[in-house]
Design a binder for these strands. Structure first.
Lengths: 196, 196
DNA sequence: GTCACTCATGCAACTAGTTGCATAGCCGCG
DNA sequence: CGCGGCTATGCAACTAGTTGCATGAGTGAC
């Protein structure tokens, strides 16, 4: 039930329509919790039925009406209760890690290529996040409350991208070393991998 | 379709029954891809229907028969193809991050307590992984092929737990600093948070 | 003018994963 | 002896999330 609560957080920051929320979930908050607009529409409908949010139709010039949602008192209580509730340890999930683990059952060079691509993607995102942090939070030490939280979650995004870049670099370095070894070891080729 | 492929990797390391796989997914491989035994049973049935694996009943003394699965040639090809296929960038997902972001809409102290608990859990896992690495891989530089991959994925687990411990520590330190400030700033209490 | 795109909401059908339970024998505890 | 726990497989019902499509009006490009 975390999407509901992510939506409550986002709506408390500022009321929004379904599509507004979908756009927010594509950036800041969505870095740690993403959702498609369909999923958001469905959950908003349920939340309204449960009385956690209420909506108001807002006319716009030259485009369809918006349904702008805001959090009700019941929604506030629900969010406050959730924030304080105990939580089990989170489990991570990474398709890339499965590939790294299984790389010896396929074409090693192809997997290394995928790893390089992923590392480049993560490096790009890292640079983007660092730019955001520099632009929006020039003086982190002065932050408090809500702004501090937003900054610290961005810091989490930066740290997480650093984790990826460093881990994948370690992976590539280690495998490039064994490939070099396999070349050096002249005639007695001990080519690892490719069991088949 | 990553669970299928995680199972193929695990079965290529060694043939196993559904429950064996579920146990493996609770440890090494499962750190980056977990699954319940029901999910595994269902996916194994589909994989067998698709011809990726075949099963053989194995009698055991004093306990029910096992269905031990192994990978077929078609399964090998499928796995090799998947390993080489391009992949989109992965998105992370963390309920804890949502709570950090929304902490000012609830009881700040309670959220900090949850953060301390999570940090302790991650520190415990980190210690556990480091112990595994020291025990099973005393000489990482000598590893190649499959063993090197297993070691490097364990390294990923260690690095990820380090990420969590460090990030959550940063979060706690930053908020403890603002709490201290709020105390110092004597009569003009600028108590942040708790907007309600 | 019409083609492609955006804004905005939503339905329907699908895949993935979780939770609760059933079966059925064997093992050890008290 | 009965109770709980372990081994092993599996069904049924549920929740969560994705994908594909529909609608209908407005905007900009050529």
């Amino acid at each position: 039930m975390a999407l509901e609560h992510a939506i409550l957080v986002s709506l408390r920051e500022r009321p929004a329509s379904g599509l507004d929320l979908a756009r927010r979930f594509d950036r800041s908050i969505g870095f740690f919790w993403s959702a498609t607009h369909q999923q958001i529409y469905r959950v908003l409908a349920r939340m309204e039925a449960d009385g956690w949010v209420r909506s108001a139709a807002v006319e716009q010039h030259g485009r369809p009406d918006k349904k702008v949602y805001e959090v009700t008192d019941a929604g506030r209580d629900e969010l406050a209760g959730w924030l304080a509730s105990p939580m089990p340890i989170e489990k991570s999930r990474s398709e890339l890690a499965v590939r790294l683990r299984g790389a010896s059952y396929g074409d090693r060079a192809a997997v290394l290529q995928r790893v390089r691509e992923q590392r480049a993607d993560h490096a790009t995102r890292l640079a983007h996040f660092e730019q955001l942090a520099a632009r929006d939070f020039p003086d982190p030490a002065a932050l408090t409350g809500q702004q501090l939280d937003i900054y610290l979650v961005l810091r989490g995004g930066i740290r997480l991208e650093q984790f990826w870049v460093e881990w994948l670099s370690e992976y590539l370095t280690a495998h490039e070393a064994t490939l070099a070894m396999a070349h050096d070891d002249s005639p007695t080729r001990r080519t690892e991998g490719k069991t088949r």
